[in-house]
């Protein structure tokens, strides 16, 4: 069949597709939904109440016996999902119509940057699917940009992240808090980041039109600029083995495992890596990457939107930074020890 005939045939097939009977009651269904109270999560409310009671009881006990709320906060901090303290605190918000996006913190390392942000529904309403609409809001460019009105030439360039020497993906971090969802947006950079080099991270948020967010990059949005002023130390260790793991990069905020696992362009892949990793220090101490030290220990590590090189690099975001990396001499990965080479 000629391509055009095939098109006409497909078009006719779609036009002939019977409409579902549910469409007859669309208005009634939507009106009924609008009468329902806003969806909340009773389980979370209960958990919050229990946690609040526990804080009050424990706090009172600690005030008497263990030295007060400072210890309580430290104790809670071990279990709470808190980021490594090495993120620069930002706290800038952008109004995106239905939602407000707040950039909480940013961390630059030699080969990557990570942005922690959260999205809040401005009308206070929330459901599970809302948060996923916002990953498309931010567009990122490293380096000089145009004017605030037209920060990106033709508004297409920022979609080609690899042209800006970077690739990566966004990740849902905590799931939901009441009214907000938290995300980490993490990007690897092919050009090294260097403090004071004039590099700037620019986050662009589309404007809302008639109360509806855009699905693509449009002029007139809000541009936030963050100069690369402080770059965290990062140690890179080549893993000379026959397996897929090629290189390990360790910083106070994340651990990245570069692999030689290749995937087709435009395809989606999911991989589960659960390596046993121990950092070995010159003074004989060891630091084990266990579940308590990383986010999402209970879920699969997922690599999607694989970069231009087609390789997958799982990343673990740390809740607790490893000790001073200048004393790191070796790492043990799944039972095999690798020496840390001199860092350039």
């Amino acid at each position: 069949m000629e391509r055009k005939e095939e098109y006409l045939h497909m078009r006719q097939e779609e036009a002939d597709r019977p409409l579902p009977p549910e469409l007859n009651h669309l208005e009634a269904r939507v009106r009924a939904r609008a009468r329902q109270p806003v969806r909340r999560r009773p389980a979370r409310k209960l958990a919050f109440t229990v946690a609040l009671c526990a804080i009050l009881v424990l706090g009172t006990a600690m005030t008497w016996g263990l030295g007060g709320f400072g210890q309580l906060i430290r104790l809670m901090g071990q279990d709470a999902e808190q980021l490594s303290p090495y993120y620069q605190t930002i706290g800038q918000s952008v109004d995106c119509g239905e939602y407000q996006v707040t950039v909480d913190g940013i961390a630059f390392t030699t080969r990557s940057y990570t942005v922690l942000y959260h999205v809040t529904a401005t009308d206070g309403e929330w459901d599970e699917t809302q948060a996923w609409a916002h990953l498309g809001f931010s567009h990122i460019i490293l380096g000089p940009s145009g004017s605030p009105q037209t920060p990106f030439e033709s508004f297409i360039a920022p979609q080609s992240l690899e042209e800006n020497g970077q690739n990566g993906w966004g990740e849902w971090l905590y799931g939901e808090d009441p009214g907000s969802a938290y995300y980490l947006l993490t990007m690897s950079t092919t050009r090294p980041l260097e403090a004071g080099s004039g590099q700037t991270l620019q986050l662009y948020f589309n404007r809302a039109v008639d109360g509806v967010s855009a699905t693509d990059v449009t002029p007139g949005g809000t541009l936030l600029s963050f100069p690369v002023e402080h770059v965290l130390q990062e140690v890179t260790i080549p893993l000379n083995n026959d397996g897929p793991c090629q290189r390990l990069s360790i910083s106070p905020v994340s651990i990245v495992l570069d692999t030689s696992l290749n995937v087709e362009e435009w395809s989606e892949v999911a991989l589960e890596f659960r390596p046993e990793l121990t950092l070995l220090y010159s003074d004989g101490t060891e630091w084990v990457l266990d579940d308590e030290k990383q986010f999402g220990a209970d879920r699969m590590s997922m690599a999607r939107d694989v970069g231009d090189d087609g390789l997958i690099s799982p990343k673990w975001h740390l809740r607790q930074a490893p000790p001073d990396l200048s004393g790191l001499t070796a790492v043990r990965l799944d039972g095999v020890t690798y020496q840390v080479p001199p860092q350039t």
């Binding site: 087709e264 362009e265 435009w266 395809s267 989606e268 892949v269 999911a270 991989l271 589960e272």
Partner: peptide, 10 residues
């Protein structure tokens, strides 16, 4: 799920 991901897509 992982086992339902397409092997190739483009």
């Amino acid at each position: 799920p992982t086992d339902q991901l397409p092997e190739t897509s483009w």
